[in-house]
Amino acid sequence: MIQIKDLHKSYEMGHNSLHVLKGLHLDIEKGEFVSIMGSSGSGKSTLLNILGILDDYDRGTYYLGGKLIQGLNETKAALTRNEMIGFIFQSFNLISFKNAMENVALPLYYQKISRKKRNQIALEYLDRLGLKEWAHHLPSELSGGQKQRVAIARALISQPQIILADEPTGALDSATSLEVMEILKEINDQGKTVIIVTHEHDIAAMTKKIIKLKDGVIGEVIKNGELQAFKDRVRTE
């Protein structure tokens, strides 16, 4: 699903150039449930942005679903994002003056689907996440967990192949975090590739593969079978 080879990215900071990604290799298969970890400055946000086609890279190649993502103009990038990627953010990023249903339906608006039809689809997705009776509430009237579920519904509605979640539980208490992770797990079980960026070990431990970034390259990959060992190690640390 995702093939990244020798990826380089640096930022210009005045006269200095900050080299963030230094020849990163990454392969993620279809249907994987991956978390990306790393201390701040390790390049995980940069990687997420490149994965989400929110930012361009300097060198290397990035294939998404067999398609080379390189030097797209803004309009093409927007269309690809809309089609292939669902975003979930730490701070939910719902639009405050739109109700839950309208927020969920927004990606379909950019696919030029009629208002009636997309609202109907949005209701279906909200129903699936148990929020049907909250459909006509504004985000400010929802709890944190509810907001994140609305955001998940929004990420799912365009039926993307990949869900990119940036600290999806960062603003939630542990019970709600667990709930959200359960939902993401279910989504993954339905065959979608889910990629989470997090710095919480117990959240990462709920995924099937952990990629640890260190200084702009992959430091360590912990796979399914080793997860138990990872969990134990985290506990003793």
Binding site: T75, A78, E83, I95, S96, L106, P107, Y110, Q111
Partner: peptide, 16 residues
């Protein structure tokens, strides 16, 4: 800015 950022992330083209 934030709202526009969200819109762009979920597929708003610069034109829209």
């Amino acid at each position: 800015t934030r709202e526009i950022g969200i819109r762009k992330a979920i597929g708003a083209t610069p034109g829209s």
